[in-house]
Simulated scan of single mutants.
Amino acid sequence: MNKTILILLVAFTSVTGLAQNSRVTHFNLEKKVAIQGYDPVAYFTQKKAVKGKKEIISTYEGVTYYFSTQANKMAFAKNPSSYEPQYGGWCAFAMGDYGEKVEINPETFKILDGKLYLFYNAYFNNTLKSWNKDETNLKKKADANWKKLTSQK
């Protein structure tokens, strides 16, 4: 009986570890940190991009975030999935338009239905403007593309 429980525990731990590792491989990370070190909670509470501090850190399912305040870190800890960026922190427009992982400018963002969307914005190409022109269609396609992309091994 104890041997069966041990085998199940090892199997569960292995599957959980693989799921986290797979999650990390799909996220837009720089040195294992999401959103280029910006505070995910500040987008919602301050309605702007705020750089996090290396001293105020939290890791959720293998993805590390920096926070500008201890209060933001605590808010994140209570419900991390509500603050994480959509599509692993990759450009929402690119995910919807052609299903690709494209870098973002963390200061170009939109909160939609309580979710954080990030966008590429460089070289006179602000993809948030393009997203806004066809948001409903692009969001639907981005959701489908992200699901397909993350289900691949």
Rank of each mutant, 00 (worst) to 15 (best):
F119Q: 10
K129E: 15
F119V: 12
K3D: 15
F119E: 13
Y98P: 08
Q20I: 15
S130K: 13
S82V: 11
V50G: 01
K110N: 05
K133F: 08
K129I: 15
Q46C: 01
K140I: 11
A19D: 05
Q20G: 01
A42F: 06
Y98W: 15
I111C: 00
Y60K: 10
F27I: 12
G114I: 10
T108A: 00
F119M: 11
Y38S: 03
N28K: 08
G96P: 00
F27Y: 15
K3F: 07
L9S: 02
F109M: 10
F124H: 14
F109N: 04
T64A: 00
L118M: 05
G89L: 10
K147C: 00
G99Y: 09
Y43A: 02
A92K: 06
I57G: 01
I5W: 02
A94E: 14
E30I: 14
T25R: 13
K101G: 00
N121H: 07
L29F: 01
E100N: 09
I35S: 05
M95K: 06
E30K: 14
E61F: 10
I7Q: 01
T4K: 12
Y66A: 01
F12S: 13
Q86H: 00
T108R: 05
K147D: 05
S81A: 06
K115Y: 07
L18A: 09
K148L: 15
T127D: 03
N137L: 04
L118H: 01
N105G: 00
Y65K: 08
N72V: 14
S22P: 07
V33H: 04
I35F: 11
N125V: 09
L29K: 00
H26R: 13
Q20P: 02
T127M: 04
A34D: 03
F12I: 15
N137S: 02
L128S: 00
E84L: 08
N132C: 01
E107Y: 04
N72F: 12
G96W: 05
S58N: 12
G114R: 10
K115T: 07
